[in-house]
Nucleic acid binder design. Structure first.
Length: 553
RNA sequence: GCCCCCGUAGCUCAGAGGAUAGAGCGUCGGCCUCCGAAGCCGGAAGCCCAGGUUCGAGUCCUGGCGGGGGCACCA
């Protein structure tokens, strides 16, 4: 967002100068905000500062704006500053500077749009965090794509990022997994045993059992449930990683809940909570006084059986996150965990930390539709849609795009038909096609035997087409978009930006041809340079989205 | 009953307190003799209701109405 920051500084200096000159009265200057204009008729950037100052200065906003404009020292990237009622300061980008951005984009390549706003800050994102008892399904996929996209954006604006997956491979669920696997194994060997309601119904466990039969025959019939649990867990855990890898999500850290017990952190956390007076015993259980933090009832930390609830390791885990020194920790929660998010923060606070470093991002469900009808899903019946099935059906790119194409607060309607449709109706293809069109130009250029580097040093001042300049303006917004995402933890802005960038590109492509016979040589080279920049920019943005940038489709 | 999310165009959604509320789909009309029409250009059409805060509210606050989700000593 460096242009906005520079502009804000220009305006602030101009206000000071106007005060010194006596054109404005003395007052403490508030923070100057700069925004993009919606309409080019208002220039490229606007500062609504004069309206804010009206009361302080006891002057009409238009007069204030004029006083500021008179004192503003225009930097080289601006050609004009204008005053518009009711008191906007409008700034216009210098065309020659805008044209030069073509070379800037080419030179900065995959680093284009980065900023140092959060340089030196450490952040962690936790998402997916499914236990290794079954395949990743689409709800977790949404959190994963949002988290991974956020990671890429935060990294681009200076954060040192850790993408983390929290899971539990011990306890009740794994026992059930072991039981299920053993029963399936026994069934395959002809024994008359049945699954209970509490067991996992999915066919993937039968596959694992079949693998056991193939490998070991009936020699494992006397192995305990733990053997089967361990075996299944390892296979499932690996296949979860493989599934996520298919949509370009790779975690830096897999954090095992069990380690919280082994390191003693769970008991440390409990002890600290007790010492700080947030725990009491009732009916044999240990309760956390969450009502002191606004909860409507207290919550159990340790059951009467002596076994901790999920809440206890969750709190201990965040205790450790705090100790690990992250400046920011982002947790993604699906709709089934919305209620637990505040309790974790209460735990952090009760442990003596300012919980504001933990940012909880909630997201709603994903509804799949096929042929205009909703695809019914049920975990119990084993008919839920898994990430793997989704990748098989529509491919990775549509999943990456659609899962991050809505605010987390909105439900997603994932249209399986649209996701694979190759037309302008499908935003995935619309965006990628921009890259493909650029690639086509360079392919044709090479086929015609021209010098592949002929555009180096081209005269960019020939790029006067309004659509071309508009594309460059849109390109300039990338940094602001990334900083906004890293500030609000809302990665969906990147999906919208990518679409807008493509929407700015296609008219330019129609209007500014390269290889057509009526394009004079110097202009042709300038345009070729432009498409080199455009191609680079789409590669950059698609990479930030974790999507591919195809040469052909 | 309590908590969370949502309510913006026929449909699906954007909208960091700022100017004439933006897209996509659908709809109506126009555009291919040369780089991907997998595209472009144009039209019609909208902030749930009532108060409040503010120079300024789709945005913030309060109260309604309507829809979705959650309220375990499961995770």
């Amino acid at each position: 967002m460096r242009i906005e920051y520079e502009l804000a500084a220009v305006v602030t200096e101009a206000i000071k100068a106007a005060q010194t000159a006596g054109d404005l009265p003395q007052f403490d200057i508030p923070e100057v905000t700069i925004e993009r204009t919606r309409d080019l008729a208002h220039g490229d950037y606007a500062a609504p500062i004069a309206m804010k100052l009206a009361r302080l200065a006891r002057m009409a906003p238009v007069k204030i704006a004029q006083a500021i404009a008179d004192q503003a020292a225009l930097p080289d990237f601006l050609s004009a500053v204008e005053v518009a009622p009711p008191g906007f300061l409008n700034f216009r980008l210098a065309t020659d500077w805008l044209q030069q951005q073509v070379d800037v984009i080419v030179e900065e390549g995959m680093g284009y749009g980065r900023s140092t706003l959060f340089a030196g800050k450490k952040a962690q994102i936790e998402c997916v965090s499914a236990n290794p008892t079954g395949p990743i399904h689409i709800g977790r996929t949404r959190g994963g794509v949002m988290g991974d996209t956020l990671k890429r954006a935060m990294k681009a604006v200076g954060y040192d990022m850790t993408l983390e997956y929290y899971y539990n491979d011990a306890g009740r669920q794994i026992t059930k997994l072991g039981e299920t696997t053993k029963i399936r194994y026994q069934q395959l060997l002809g024994q008359d045993v049945k699954l209970g309601d509490e067991h996992y119904q999915g066919a993937y466990i039968t596959d694992i059992a079949r693998e056991l039969v193939d490998k070991f025959g009936d020699s494992k019939l006397n192995e305990p449930v733990e053997f089967f649990g361990d075996y299944a867990k390892n296979i499932i855990s690996q296949s979860q990683k493989d599934s996520l890898k298919r949509i370009n999500i790779v975690f830096d850290v897999y954090y095992n809940e069990r380690s919280l017990y082994e390191s003693g952190r769970v008991w440390d956390a409990l002890k600290t909570l007790e010492e700080r007076g947030y725990v009491y015993e009732k009916e044999g259980a240990k309760w956390f006084k969450t009502t002191e933090f606004g909860d409507d009832k207290d919550r159990v930390l340790v059951k009467a059986t002596g076994e901790p609830t999920y809440r206890m390791p969750d709190i201990a885990y965040h205790y450790h996150k705090a100790e690990r020194g992250f400046d920011v920790v982002v947790d993604f929660f699906g709709p089934d965990h919305h209620a637990t998010a505040p309790q974790v923060l209460m735990g952090v606070q009760a442990l003596g930390y300012d919980p504001s470093f933990v940012k909880t991002v909630l997201h709603q469900i994903v509804n799949l539709t096929r042929g205009g009808k909703q695809v019914k899903m049920s975990t119990r019946a084993g008919t839920f849609v898994t990430l793997d099935e989704l990748v098989d059906e529509v491919g990775a790119d549509p999943i990456r795009y659609f899962m991050v194409s809505r605010s987390g607060n909105s439900e997603i309607l994932f249209d399986l038909d649209l996701a694979v449709e190759q037309s302008d109706k499908n935003p995935v293809y619309y965006i990628q096609n921009a890259h493909v069109r650029c690639a086509g130009i360079f392919r044709k250029w090479a086929e015609a035997g021209y010098d592949p580097n002929a555009d180096e040093g081209a005269d960019l001042s020939l790029l006067t087409n309004e659509y071309v300049l508009n594309f460059l303006r849109k390109g300039l917004e990338l940094t602001a978009v990334l900083e906004k995402i890293a500030t609000t933890y809302e990665p969906h802005h990147l999906a919208f930006y990518a679409y807008e960038l493509a929407a700015a590109f296609h008219p330019a492509y129609e209007a500014a041809r390269v290889l057509h016979s009526d394009v004079p040589e110097p202009l042709r080279l300038a345009r070729l340079r432009f498409y080199r920049a455009a191609k680079q920019l789409f590669a950059r943005v698609l990479d930030l989205l974790g999507m591919s940038a195809p040469e052909v489709m």
